[in-house]
Structure formats: C-alpha cells, structure tokens
C-alpha cells in the first residue's frame, strides 16, 4: 500500500506515493534526492538529519514521510539564498566548525533554530542546545565559536 504525500522542500513543491513506513529522512534522501541531510544513527541520537519543518528544527528520522504531508521543509541545500551563504554557514566556514562535514548540515540547522530562540546565546546555552547533535571530529570547540560568530553577524543584519 502506498500513500500520496505532498510537501514544499526548499521552495519546490514535491509529491510522491510512498510506503507509510518510509521515514522522512529516507524520503528526502532517496526519493527526492537531496543527500545533504545525513543519517548517522538509528536511534535519533546523532542529529545529522536535522531539518526545518515549518520553521522548527526536527530530526528527520523521527517521523514518517506521510506525517510531513503538507509541510514546508528547509534542508541544508535550501539555506543559502541566491548563492549567498547564510551567516551560520559562513560562521562554520570562518571558525573551522567542521572537519569531516558529516554532522555539519544537522548542526547548522539546529543552530538556526537556536539563534531564533536565543539571538545572543551564552556559551552554556549553545552547548546545552546542541545536546541533540553529535560531532566526533571537532570536540565542539569550533562549533561553539561558529555559532557565536553567526549570532554576532546576524545581530548586525537585523
């Protein structure tokens, strides 16, 4: 049995028929073909698949594609606008907030919502808010710095 799903991903309307058990992350990666959203675990611990659903940072492995029917989604591929990096992306580049790059899309999108909630986050707030995202390369030091950089530059723009 397959069910129809429709959603808007990075401004593009997509619709497919999918198995009800298909996870949203696999839908995005395998059906829609956007492979920037990564799968690092099978227990919703790592956060590599974090995306924005209707503005909320969500781990795309925690719901089925059919549950996201009608949703507006932003993945890492949709964050830069008109070829210009988002300040969070820029911050990760400036501050060496990534090494292997695998956790990075999830980190950036988790940071996106973090900075909406806490536009001027303290170091403790950043660390606490990153609880759901694992990185094995950076020891988090430069991820914290990257998010601080982004916060400063986003404050300047508002």
């Amino acid at each position: 049995m397959k069910l129809p799903v429709k959603m808007t991903i990075n401004g593009q309307k997509v619709s497919h028929e999918v198995e009800p058990r298909l996870l949203l992350v696999h839908y995005i990666r395998e059906v829609v073909g956007l492979t920037g959203t990564h799968v690092g675990c099978d227990t919703s611990q790592c956060g590599a698949c974090t995306i924005l659903i209707d503005g909320q940072a969500v781990k795309a492995c925690t719901l089925f594609a059919v549950q996201a029917d009608g949703a507006t989604i932003t993945t890492i591929e949709g964050l830069a606008k008109n070829g210009e990096l988002h300040p969070i992306q820029q911050g990760f580049w400036e501050k060496h907030g990534l090494q292997c790059g695998f956790c990075t899309p999830g980190m950036i999108l988790a940071a996106y919502q973090m900075l909406e909630r806490y536009p001027k986050p303290t170091e403790d707030q950043i660390r606490h808010q990153l609880e759901g995202n694992l990185c094995r390369c950076t020891g988090y030091h430069n991820i914290v710095k990257a998010i601080q950089w982004a916060a400063e530059h986003m404050a300047g723009k508002k």
């Binding site: 920037g36 993945t75 890492i76 990096l85 992306q89 580049w93 990534l98 790059g101 990075t104 950036i108």
Partner: peptide, 9 residues
C-alpha cells in the same frame, strides 16, 4: 568547506 556547509558533499 563550501560543499560541506551547503549539503553538496
């Protein structure tokens, strides 16, 4: 980095 931070790795 540009490819990794834009999801194009």
């Amino acid at each position: 980095d540009p490819r990794f931070i834009t999801g194009r790795g």
